[in-house]
Computed example of a mutant assay.
Amino acid sequence: MANGSRMAAWEFFGSELKRHRENAGITQVELGARVFVSGGYIGQFEQAIRKPQLDVAQRIDEVLQTDGFFERTWRQLINDKRYADYFGPVVELERLATKICEYAPTVVPGLLQTAAYAEAVTIAANPFVTNAYVEEKVMARLERADILKDATRPEYWAILHENVLRIPVGGPEAMAEQLEHIAHLMRERTVWLTVIPYAVGAHASMIGDLRLMEFEDAPPVAYTETSFSGTLLDDPAVVKRAQRAYDLLRGTALSPEASLALIESAAEDFRRCASTT
């Protein structure tokens, strides 16, 4: 579904929510209290500014007695087949975030990937798929990165392990291009990025990818991912633990200046290798 049609569909969700709420004779504040969000949230749902979580849509159905209408509509709209089922809600939250912090131990985060790097990662994980499938996945990943181009872009922080700079994904040319892209974003102050070097050894969070997201008027969330699944976490105690882990990681990383120098050195190494092959 194209972006425009998806947006129109969420506007339909919002207009139906308003219609059913008004028919029930309750205010936004009253509905919000009964589904455990603020009245302001309900207003944002109705204006398609914010998209509700599944459990909120389910509670709206219960309060308004709409026989599962909002849950079914939510599932249809959130089900973007370009993304894994567990990742679709994360993409929606990215677009609303005011701050995104990522830790990547092995692979460049999706928001920073170039087309060649994204293609290589996609094919490595799915060696028997069609070219059309690969193209769709790559375009979806590049489309996500558009949030870093907006005037209202979120603060974007990333911590990369040195593994990310050394694993030759897509070959020397693709890696040189990828690292040069990251260096450019750093120099343009689009992202704040640091690197944990090999010399650190054991560090605070030797786990899979970790992402923290903050919002203007909603509690922060954490997202963890492994090879075959991802988990969106909103329990305040768990999110606090994830934030502490991220702080510890940041404490072991190089300075931004030293990180940039390391990235540019790695890019030069890959560029020299590409020129001799």
Rank of each mutant, 00 (worst) to 15 (best):
R82K: 09
T66Q: 12
E30Q: 04
T66V: 14
A24H: 10
E22N: 08
E119P: 00
D67P: 03
P52E: 06
D61Y: 09
V37S: 10
Q65L: 07
A124F: 13
A116T: 04
Q76N: 14
T27D: 10
L96W: 00
R72W: 12
G25K: 06
T122P: 08
F128C: 14
A33T: 10
F128E: 03
Q58H: 10
A48C: 15
Q113P: 09
A124V: 02
G88R: 10
Q44V: 04
F45G: 00
E71K: 12
T66P: 02
G110P: 00
I60M: 15
G40H: 06
K81R: 11
L31V: 01
V56E: 12
P109E: 09
F128Q: 05
R72Q: 05
E46Y: 08
V56K: 13
G88N: 12
Y41Q: 03
F36E: 09
R59H: 08
A33P: 00
V63P: 04
V29R: 05
R75M: 15
A84P: 15
E30Y: 03
P127F: 08
G68V: 07
K51Y: 12
F45Y: 05
I60H: 07
I78H: 05
E119Y: 13
T73M: 09
Q47I: 02
R50T: 15
I42M: 07
L64A: 15
P105Y: 11
W74K: 10
A124R: 14
V90A: 14
E30M: 10
T27C: 10
T122Q: 08
F70N: 12
P105A: 04
R59T: 01
V29W: 04
